[in-house]
Design a protein around this nucleic acid. Structure first.
Lengths: 170, 170
DNA sequence: CAGCTTACGTCAGTGTTGTTGACATTCCAA
DNA sequence: TTGGAATGTCAACAACACTGACGTAAGCTG
């Protein structure tokens, strides 16, 4: 762990800091913030035939074009049957394209079509706008802390998936 | 907005900071972290007959004992039909008590029973443990940033609800 | 008091999203 | 080549959200 990196002088203070009340406030902050986080895309999606699951699929396909169903499954943390229902409608509506794997024909590689990219853009614009406002309001210093705490809150497996996507984007 | 509060000297840097890539990473961090955030209570709840909705109800009733149904509705952001289904089972199972209002007899005031408090304790222990570990790992400085960004991400209405609960806990 | 509103509960119907179970196809290795 | 593992699809079901409609009790107001 990185506890030692905090310096000995902070030991007492950090213990004092983590009162039950502070932790409870952190929990509630996560709850309320996540609501805000999903509110804008949700509004857009309900007008269409889609839900939050479609948003997630579109987001990560855009993020890692050519990804396989199995890979997407691990990232999203749902069963393949659940994902498949979503993918089926997205493919039927011409937002996602599924190409049979070249080397392994069992695999399907997923890509956004132009229409899919347009939807992703619309959804992500709304979500990024809120994130941008929040980052600006909280100040540059806060953003690092925000990201560090969130990363530490992830399950190790998800943490690795997150890191892989970060590299992807660079 | 509070943009001006950041000082003129940070303008360029903050603009540089908020690249699309940074924002997308923030979005993905929220997604993965929220999964971790709910994972432990979810595991406990599936063993019982309950779901995440029951957890939320129990959490906020514990947090604001004597709260009314209407108040809880606003905090949770669900329909009364949806909340009622949850409350009905919790009351039937003896985890929540519903008392008719003293001054306004239309209102029902909600309290946890001893059994309800026990469940809340069990769930919140797990969730707080993860939060504590994350806070420790990220360091004391990060916690402030974490909270500031989350608060800025909330809808104004939820922000007020959050602030009210914070005062409650003090 | 009469009529309107508020707070709460409930019944019925629907949609999204998760689950398990069963199955087809493809790959690979014994 | 045969059997097992991996990948993906189809079908049925459960949880939990939603809307809409209705009923009851209590408060408020003219």
């Amino acid at each position: 762990m990185r506890d030692t990196g905090m310096g000995a002088g902070l030991g007492g203070e950090s213990l004092l800091f983590l009162t039950d009340e502070q932790l409870r406030q952190g929990i509630e902050a996560m709850f309320f913030a996540y609501r805000g986080f999903t509110a804008d895309p949700d509004r857009i999606l309900t007008d269409m035939e889609y839900g939050r699951a479609h948003h997630r699929a579109v987001h990560f396909i855009n993020r890692a074009p050519g990804t396989t169903v199995n890979n997407l499954l691990n990232i999203l943390g749902v069963t393949k049957q659940s994902l498949n229902r979503v993918l089926r409608t997205l493919i039927a509506d011409g937002l996602v394209e599924s190409r049979v794997g070249h080397s392994d024909k069992r695999e399907r590689h997923l890509y956004l079509t132009d229409a899919g990219r347009a939807l992703e853009q619309q959804l992500s614009d709304a979500q990024r706008a809120r994130m941008r406002t929040a980052f600006r309001e909280a100040g540059p210093d806060a953003v690092g802390g925000f990201r560090r705490v969130l990363e530490a809150m992830m399950d190790p497996e998800m943490r690795r998936a997150y890191a892989r996507l970060k590299e992807n984007g660079t």
